[in-house]
Amino acid sequence: MKGVLATEKRGIRELGAEEMVGWDEVTQGVVLHSFDTEVENVAHIRPEERPYSDFNSYTATVASWRVIKPVYNRDVCIDCQNCWVWCPDTSIISRDKQMLGIDYDHCKGCGVCVEVCPTNPKSLLMFAEAEDNEEALAKWPEKKKKEK
């Protein structure tokens, strides 16, 4: 079962995955299932192993909101996870205490991760959305000397 829809005209019935109903038809309430199959405790299942349903916003994208994007430089990163804890969009992918990269489907380009990055030079920097990641990495700034 994907979801349950209760409308005045057609009563309570199941909602198919591809089916879209206008919000004005939903008068009594709607139940959306985050997963296609029943799951025991989501806290014990890694995101890549979860049976996400089409109603889960994980399957949607907000990439079009971005005008600037963060680019990640593995060589400078110290895996402090500051970016992970303060990312508002669950877009920093961390597994086994390691920072793996940025989820560009869900990142809105706010730049919080760059601000909280403590390394010198920063291991995350904002670039224009149109810029190629490889090109961005090629012009990464040098380590800044401490001002005395």
């Binding site: 989501v42 806290a43 014990h44 299942i45 890694r46 995101p47 889960n56 916003s57 994980y58 949607a60 994208t61 907000v62 909101w65 895996d79 402090c80 996870q81 500051n82 992970w84 804890v85 508002p88 969009d89 669950t90 877009s91 961390s94 597994r95 086994d96 205490k97 989820d103 489907d105 869900h106 990142c107 809105k108 380009g109 706010c110």
Partner: peptide
């Protein structure tokens, strides 16, 4: 923080809160 980051997220991205 490293230990904390091993938790499996239960709040998904692509919500529509402001950046």
């Amino acid at each position: 923080l490293k230990e904390f980051s091993t938790t499996n997220e239960r709040f998904e991205g692509a919500h529509l809160l402001c950046p």
